[in-house]
């Protein structure tokens, strides 16, 4: 089976982020990396393609500039190719604008299954994959812990408030994957070398048949108009544990009458 995985290249979360003071967009400077959250989807896609006796894993991504460094990581893990939609007009896109772009890109791949993370690490709206599903006219299952293919449908374990549901869903479908459910493979040296020559098909907004008004800040219909520092919390007492640190915790809880 052929699987498309939506992946996002993000600024390294270990580096402090910032907003552009004028546009209030996230500053995406420096090298972009593959969002950790997406590695799980890539791993599951590779496993499903392998266990179904072949098929391709295609990455689908969007970035305002032609950045590919994060995509190469996922290609090195074993994905076959990537479709990257890159266009300056995409800057400031909201989740729906992003979904329009990804949906059009996915149509060009016609996969049996579309995977995505439940939410990105940087923007974390968590709505884009289901918006993609609606635009493609596909069913969707979010918060998947496990996916099994059964002929023309899939069986998904979906996290719920009380435990999990087993969900049956015909293909094609969109599934979002929670982090930590599989162990993403590390790219091998051979994989890293191979990734350098794997095809990355670059498209722009016009090439997807979308109009400028559907994407970017013009298509967003929402704006961040103010950013303030949050009120600081006062720092309390910090003590080195000398073996009696636990007693501090006990008396803290006693003072609050919680024990």
């Amino acid at each position: 089976m052929n699987v498309a995985v939506c992946v996002k290249q993000i600024p390294d979360p270990a580096a402090p982020g910032s907003l552009d003071p004028t546009t209030k967009n996230l500053v995406r400077g420096g090298k972009l990396i593959l969002d950790d959250s997406d590695a799980y989807g890539v791993e599951i896609a590779l496993q499903l393609a392998e266990s179904s006796g072949g098929g391709e894993v295609t990455l689908v991504s969007m970035a305002p500039n032609g950045e590919t460094s994060g995509l190469r990581t996922a290609l090195a893990m074993g994905a076959s190719k990537a479709v990257l939609v890159s266009d300056g007009k995409l800057a400031g896109s909201d989740a729906l604008g992003t979904a329009r772009v990804l949906a059009e890109a996915i149509k060009r791949v016609s996969p049996d299954l579309v995977l995505a993370a439940t939410e990105s690490t940087d923007g974390y709206t968590g709505t884009t994959p289901v918006q993609v599903a609606e635009l493609l006219g596909m069913p969707s299952v979010t918060f998947a812990k496990k996916i099994e293919v059964d002929g023309n449908s899939i069986k998904v374990e979906r996290q719920t408030e009380a435990g999990y549901d087993e969900v049956s869903c015909p293909l094609p479908a969109v599934v979002t994957v929670t982090a930590g459910v599989v162990e993403p493979r590390y790219p091998s040296f051979k994989g890293i070398m191979a990734a350098k020559s794997k095809p990355v098909d670059q498209l722009d907004v016009a090439g997807l048949g979308l109009s400028d008004s559907q994407v970017g800040s013009t298509g967003a219909g929402q704006e961040v108009f103010e950013v303030q520092d949050a009120p600081q919390r006062d720092v309390g007492e910090i003590v080195e544990d000398d073996g009696e640190g636990y007693a501090k915790v006990v008396s803290f809880l006693e003072n609050l009458k919680l024990i």
Partner: peptide, 24 residues
Amino acid sequence: GATYDGRDVAARLSAKISKGVITN
């Protein structure tokens, strides 16, 4: 609500009626 189902409904509806959604 930012619940398992709340986000699904909001996302579907957003795409269906072509209106953005403000999250978090």
